[in-house]
């Protein structure tokens, strides 16, 4: 990021990039898009992320008994 005001945006592209890199749980994703970084409310974050995940339709796999999402390149 650049400078102290480095914003993170919750976008389809950003989510796709994370999930292409490695499998992540919903909680992992939420950590990447913390409300204090995106400026969104908790509710907005959940809604937007849900829409993006439905659209991307990532693969799912269980790792350590937790559901992880990932995308093949």
């Amino acid at each position: 990021g650049q400078g102290s005001g480095c914003d993170i945006q919750l976008t389809e592209d950003a989510v796709r990039r994370y999930l292409t890199r490695k499998p992540m749980t919903t909680k992992d994703l939420l950590k990447k898009f913390q409300t204090k970084k995106t400026g969104l409310s908790s509710e907005q974050t959940v809604n937007v992320l849900a829409q993006i995940l439905k659209k991307l339709n990532p693969e799912r796999k269980m790792i350590n008994e937790k559901m992880h999402f990932f995308l093949k390149e």
């Binding site: 919903t26 939420l30 908790s42 959940v46 809604n47 849900a50 439905k54 559901m67």
Partner: peptide
């Protein structure tokens, strides 16, 4: 806090459950 993250993760999973 981590409990807020837990709540958000639960809400997100609930949203996705309709879909999965």
């Amino acid at each position: 806090s981590s409990s807020e993250a837990d709540e958000m993760a639960a809400a997100l999973e609930a949203e996705l459950n309709d879909f999965i």
